[in-house]
């Protein structure tokens, strides 16, 4: 599941102004993994986006990637 974490980190770091403040942790469950994303406060808007579109796009990409390994992954953005 390392790959899922790296995928989110890669995207988030590309979108924010403070890539060094991006932290991604993974809470692994039996069937579902929770990917927790934390960014600098001023970058929150960049990973959430207008009407949550950026967050939704990241979730869509994450679920496509996790289909390949037959395990569900959900993205949570921590505030």
């Amino acid at each position: 599941m390392m790959a899922m974490k790296e995928l989110i980190k890669y995207i988030a770091q590309a979108l924010v102004d403070n890539p060094d403040k991006v932290e991604v942790t993974e809470v692994e469950g039996e069937q579902t993994s929770v990917i927790e994303l934390k960014v600098a406060k001023e970058d929150l808007g960049k990973v959430i986006g207008k009407q949550g579109r950026t967050a939704r796009a990241m979730r869509t990409i994450l679920s496509a990637a996790s289909t390949k390994i037959n395990k569900r992954a959900v993205l949570e953005i921590l505030e």
Binding site: L15, A57, M58, I61
Partner: peptide, 17 residues
């Protein structure tokens, strides 16, 4: 087409950062 749209959206956000 939702994955393709999501990839497109993210790429645009990146290019217009």
């Amino acid at each position: 087409g939702q994955t393709l749209d999501a990839l497109q959206y993210i790429t645009n956000r990146y290019m217009q950062r």
